[in-house]
Nucleic acid binder design. Sequence first.
DNA 1: TCCGAGCCACTTTTT
DNA 2: GTGGCTCGGA
Length: 796
Amino acid sequence: MSSEPHSPQPALTISQRAMARAPGSSNRADGGNEHPWMMGLNDQQREAVEALDGPVLVLSGAGTGKTKVLTSRLAQLLVTGRAKPWEILSVTFTNKAAREMRDRTQLLIGPAAEGLRWLGTFHSTSAMILRRHAELVGLKPSFTVLDTDDQIRLMKQVIEAENIDQKRWTPRFLASLIDGWKNRALTPDKVPAEESFLFANGKGAKLYALYQSRLKVLNCVDFGDLLLETISLFLKEPDLLAEYHDRFKYILVDEYQDTNVAQYLWLRLLARKRKNICVVGDDDQSIYGWRGAEVDNILRFEHDFPGAKIIRLERNYRSTPHILAAASHLIASNKNRLGKTLWTEIPEGDRVLVRGIWDGEAEARLIADDIEQWRRTGRRYDESAVLVRASWQMRAFEERFLMLQIPYKVIGGPRFFERAEIRDAHAYLRLIRSLDDDLAFERIVNVPKRGIGDTSVQRLGTAARLAGVPLFTMASQLLGSDELKGPARTGLTRFIHQLEHWRKKSLELPHTELAELILDESGYTDMLKADKNPQSVSKLDNLKELVRSMGQFDTLAAYLEHIELVMDLDRTEEGDAVQILTLHAAKGLEWPLVFLPGWEEEVFPSRRALDEKGDKALEEERRLAYVGITRARESARISFAANRQIYGRWNSVLPSRFVDELPDGHVDAVSDTGYFNQGTGGAAERFAAYGPLSTQPGNGFGTGYESPGWKRAQAAAALGKLAPGMAKGFGGPIIDGEAKLLARTGAKDATYAVGQRIFHDKFGYGAVRHVEGSKLTIQFEKSGEKKVLDSFVSPA
DNA sequence: TCCGAGCCACTTTTT
DNA sequence: GTGGCTCGGA
C-alpha cells in the first residue's frame, strides 16, 4: 500500500485524455477546468460521482456506464482527499469485476489509486477480516476455504454418520439447502422447522449443525461461512466493528441487485455508522435469484437507508434504438421493478431479427451462415456471440462451427480449478502445507490406486475421529500396530513415507519443482499416461498449466491461498473467435452481433425454473432475456425452433412467450420456409403433422397470448380455428404482419446428376457418383464414398 | 480391491 | 446422449 501524497491535479496521461473523449462524452463546455475523470460524464453520471456523502443508489441500466461511474467515484474520493485508499471499502461480486475496477481506477488517476487494499469480492474481503480475528470465532488464522466439492464430501460423511439413506437424501441436496440457509444468514438454530423438514424428515438443521462443527474441527470454512462468520464476529465484538467503522469512511458496492441476505446484513453492519454507502446496480439485470440473490435488496434500498439519494443512469451508450426498444418493451412486462427508461443517441440501426426454424441443427446452420456472412463483410468473428440459456445448447453450435471451421471459444464451462486432476494435485500440495488437512488426505490417499480401499479409509477415519487426531497422525500410528494388513498396509506405509519425504523436499525445492516431483513420484502422471481415455492427454496438459501458474507466486502457501479464494486464473487466450456462452455469463459483456437461439417455451423460459419458483422465476427469466438483448450493439438475432432434441429425445416445442412480448415496430419476424421445403420424407412429414394443417391443443399455455403481436399473427395468418401456439411461428409472419419470408436458394427440389459437385452438412464437399431415386452415392473429398439421401445435400 | 455393466438424472454458477 | 454413481462379480 502506498501512503504517497497525491497532487490534486495530476497531469493528464494519454489514456486519461483518451478516456475523456470516449464515446458518450458529454458536451460540457467547462470540461477544461475539471478533474480529468469528470470529463466525459453525462449529467446523471456526474451526479452519481459527486454525491459522495450519505446513502446513494445508482440505478444503472444496461450499457449506461456503470463501471465508469464507480471508478470515477473512487477517483473523486481519492484525489479530493476525502479518503485514503485504505479507507474505502469497495466490494464486487466477482474477482474479474474487482480487477477491472482496480485497473480502470489506476488508469484514471495512476499511482493515487495504489493501496486500495479493501477492493475485492465480498468473500475475499471477508476472508481478510476473518484471518485477522479468526480466534474470536473459533478458528485458526490459517483456516482453509473449502470449495463446493469439499463441502459435499464433508456432508456425505455427516449424513453417513447419522445413518441416513444417501440415495433418498443426497449430500448434494443437503449442500444446496445449507447453502440457501447461509445465503439467508440463517445459522443452524435459526432454520425454520418446516425447512428443516426438507431433509431426512426434519434432520436438516441438525445435520447443518453437525456439518458446522465438523468444519470447526477441521479448521475450515466454506464460502457461505466467510460472510456469516464475519457477521457473527461483528455482532459478537462491537468494539471490533467500531474499529472497522472508523476505518471504512466510504463504501462502494457493485452489482447490488445480486447481493443475498447475508451480504446485505454484512453491508448494513459496516455502513451503520457513517452511512456513506453507494450501491450500484440494475434491478432489471438481477439473474441470480436461484443462487440466493434478493432483488428486494435493491428494491428496498430507499427504505433501508432513509434519505437515500437515487440516481438513474438511463442514457445507453451501447445499443441501437431498436435493440433498446425491444429490450425495454420486453422487460416492461415485469411487475416487480423500479423502472427506468433507457434512451440513446446512437443512430437507428437494424431491427431485432426474430426467426423461426425447423430444428436445432437448422438453427446452428443459420447462425453459422450469418457469421460467415458477417465475416465476408469484413467484420471479425470475435465481434459476435451466441448466448444460450443452458450449456447443453452449446454443442449444436460447436459441432456446426467445427464443421465449417469457424473459430469459436466457449466461455465458462467447467472451471480450471474444479477439474478433478487439478483438485487432486491441490490435495497433494495442501498436504504438504499441512499434514492435518484431512479432506485433502482422504481425497488422494488412494489416487492413484495404492490398494487402500474404502473399507480401510473408513476404518482409519473412525479411529482418527475417536482419538481426535488427524488422519495422517492416525495412519502413522496404525502402521505401528498390526491393525491393517495386506495391500492396504503396504500402500499406506509407502504413502506416509512419501508424504514425509515430500515435506522434507519442500524445504529445499522451489514449489513448482516440488509439484512436478510429487506428481511424478506419486505415480499420478503415470496413471494418466496409462489411461487410454483420450481426455487424459488434456489432463496432463492441465497439470502442466497448473505448474506454470504456480510460478506466478513466490511460495506454495501464497499460491494455495490465492486459488482457494479466487478460483480463477487470468487466462488470456487471445484470438479472433466467435464466443459461445450462457446468458448468465454474458452479463456485463457486449458484442456488435448477438445471437439468441432457443427462445422456446420450456427451454427459455426454463421449465424447471418455472416449476420451482413460478412467477418469481418467470420474471427472472424475463430479466435474463433482457440481459441477452441488451448485450447487442448493432444486431440482435433471436431464433426458435419447431423441434428440439433434449436429452436425446425429440420434442415439438413452442416459441417462447418472450417472443410475443417484443414490440412490433422494432422487430423483423421471419419464418424461414425454405428450411421446411428442403426436407423430404420424414422431416417434411413431421413438419406437416406439426404445422398449421393439423390442430392440437396448445399445451396449456393459455395465458400470455394476449399481446398485440400474437393477436395480429392470428389475424394475419387467418388461422382463427387453430389453437394458440400452433399457428405461431410457421404458418407465416410471427409478429410483424409485413414480415418477409425468406426462401433459401439452392437446396429445395434439386435433382442431381452424376459428376455434380455437392455439399453435405456432415461430410462436406463431394461429387455425385451414382443416382438411384432420391438416394445418391457420393465420393466425399474428406470422408470417402457414402450413400446419402438427396435431401441432405445441396449443389455446391 | 478393482472393474465393468446398468441406472438415473440432467438449468443457470461465483465465491 | 452422456456422464457419474452403484452394485455385483472376479
